[in-house]
């Protein structure tokens, strides 16, 4: 990015109208990917000068234990529903989960899921990291996920969505293919870096379960309806990407998972959805542009 500039120079403007038509495999009109965030939040992390990890003095019992629900209860509930309707996961992973709770990671591997890095912990923020520190979290991520899953990670969602001006350059330098941190489009798009090729894949804040339940205050059924509406529109426009970003401790609560399963079933049965992993979507887009 152009540090300090009004326009960070992340990409060129590209109007929706007049773009080359993208067609997904078997003529599908919307590539749908599900991004479960498999996270570890520390109970007593160091405090970053620009962001407090927890609202309360440590231990923030509700904050910590709510997120721990993912790793004891709701991961498997969410994952089973996804598998039942043919949705693979592309995991946004706090890579330290490979050490803390390897069985959660192994479950995703067994389901054929793709893994990308979401930092070491979701309680360590990248702002103000030195280049050496930022390289260390990238190299640690590559090594840790390789050891735990056999996969070379291709993507990045910044830990707790925290960045430095050099992050995207470093990702390209380390041969990453995609970033999930940019929200400017409904299609895969090229990202400008000083060091190599990188694309953005649409992730989503708007239909992220966290926004659904804690920003827009939806019920489980309202969130499920939102997913269906999002899909219906994107599938009718064609060549689009829909991401469903999830947190098991939210979507896997007993009052939400039933309506969520109905939404997945609807999307899977519609016939226009290509149920894919993030890397597959990036590859299919690259093959057409």
């Amino acid at each position: 990015m152009l540090e300090g500039a009004k326009d960070p120079g992340l990409y060129d403007y590209a109007p929706y109208r007049g773009r080359k038509k993208i067609v997904w495999p078997e003529g599908k009109t919307c590539a749908v990917w599900v991004a479960p965030n498999l996270e570890y939040y520390e109970i007593d992390p160091p405090v970053h000068p620009k962001r407090k990890p927890w609202a309360k003095p440590h231990p923030d019992v509700v904050g910590y234990s709510h997120r721990d629900h993912s790793n004891r209860v709701s991961h498997w509930r969410m994952a089973e529903v996804m598998s039942r309707h043919g949705f693979p996961g592309s995991v946004s992973l706090s890579v330290a989960l490979c050490q803390h709770h390897p069985k959660v990671v192994a479950d995703g591997v067994a389901r054929g899921w793709e893994f990308f890095s979401h930092g070491i912990y979701n309680t360590r923020y990248s702002y103000d990291m030195s280049e050496a520190q930022e390289r260390s979290i990238i190299e640690d991520s590559i090594r840790t996920v390789q050891d735990a899953t056999g996969q070379r990670i291709r993507g990045w969602l910044a830990p707790a969505l925290t960045h430095t001006p050099r992050t995207l350059n470093l990702l390209a330098e380390y041969d990453f293919d995609y970033t999930c941190d940019l929200y400017h489009d409904d299609q895969v798009q090229a990202v400008k870096t000083a060091t190599g090729d990188l694309v953005s894949i649409p992730y989503s804040l708007e239909v992220n379960d966290h926004y659904g339940f804690f920003v827009y205050n939806m019920s489980g059924r309202e969130y499920a309806d939102t997913l269906v509406r999002q899909f219906e529109r994107l599938a009718s426009e064609g060549g689009t990407v829909m991401c469903i970003p999830l947190h098991a401790y939210l979507i896997g609560q007993p009052h939400r998972i039933g309506p969520f399963e109905e939404a997945l079933e609807h999307i899977a049965k519609d016939g226009r959805a290509w149920l894919a992993r993030a890397g597959d979507i990036v590859d299919a887009w690259r093959a057409q542009v």
Partner: peptide, 12 residues
Amino acid sequence: YTEYPKRRHGYD
């Protein structure tokens, strides 16, 4: 800030 003394199997 990028050291993790409680990164281990099980909880922190």
